[in-house]
Design a protein around this nucleic acid. Sequence first.
DNA 1: TCTGGGGTCCTAGGACCC
DNA 2: TCTGGGGTCCTAGGACCC
Length: 418
Amino acid sequence: MKDRIIFHIDCNSAYLSFEAANRLRLGHTLDIRTIPSVVGGDPKTRRGIILAKSNMCKQYKIQTGETLYTALAKCPSLLIVKPNYKLYMKCSDAMCDIIREYSSQIQRFSIDEVFVDYTESEQIFGDPITVANTIRERIKNELGFTVNIGVSNNKLLAKMGSDNFEKPDKTHTLWPHEVKEKFWPLPIGELFMVGRATEPKLKKMGIETIGDLARMDPELVKLRLKSHGLMIWQYANGIEDSVVRKSNYMTIKGIGNSTTIPFDVDEKDMAYKYLLSLTESVASRLRSSKHLCQVIQVSIKYSDFSRVQHQKKLFNATDLTNEIYFYTRFLFDEAWNGDAIRHLGIRVSNLIPNDNIQYTLFEDPADLERKRKLDATIDNIRNLYGGSSIYRSTLLHSPVKPMTGGVEESYPLMTSLI
DNA sequence: TCTGGGGTCCTAGGACCC
DNA sequence: TCTGGGGTCCTAGGACCC
């Protein structure tokens, strides 16, 4: 069988580059990439962490994920921009439009990452490196931001090629014959799927580089780290054969929303209000995806950052806001230990298509139809006039918004496995 | 560095069944 | 019968990604 040719295209400092390009397009004269600047949340609402940073932040040792507070201490003149996800989505769409001109086999891995299967396109467009460079130049010239492109025979090596070598605005190959020389010397923490917890375990085994892991006995790694160990051993050896899937939109596994509350909550009623607001978003997204859920999960993060999570499998699948809210309260009561709450989340999963509603023995089908119609009507009003156009009376005179969380439709979803 | 919000998958233990 | 083993379901928690 013919070897595949895979690209991985990765935006450099995505959110910050998108902001910079947009400001220039609007006529600003300052390119915020040339000064210390970050995209981040609002510290007043306790969402103050850095999501993306300009290259100039490096000299101040500002890190992605740290608080704006500590970053400002390192660099008082730091420019802070609030995130604008609608803009980022537009940039991502525009980038994909360019990429699609060169292959129909593309997979949006996240808002700023795309896999491309170039195998079939080679006979039309020619040399993959030349085309990768063309795509890179076109994105820079037409959209105003830069990308790194990794080229190889599988998705893992393509991704490692775009992530781990010189940035920004570069194309790198990481063909299997280059693995030993270019891939193996990298520190083990750079390997996809080796994170905060796995890295120290590997280091304890004397593994410092990706090559160290690749040369280990796979049985030994599996013994210590189970199936995850075997997987990262294969990754270290450049072994990975998943296909570039057109879209994972149809195979969505769950829908969740969560929020950090601007103040600590220690009253059940206030917690319920946030849960209701979250339920409104989750249930409405569930209905618009045309699914019913069979599992509901509530998670609580306390002010000391410890967290608990309780879930329940339902007897009958549902998409009704009120029914989901009922179980949400039940699960919250079960899980909450009375301590001050910082963060609340709701997730629904075990989804099934909504085209075949099971009527229960104990419920009047006409009554269920009425409830479904009510939800559908509310969804329609919100689609037409916005999320705040219709309020639950309990949320009217409270700090809680009628809906909390939610993502744009067709927002690219990623899975932890590539 | 005192840590957002959106996801997915894996594992271990207990309940329950045959 | 107080004792086995295997299978499946459910739940809580952990790990990883961007």
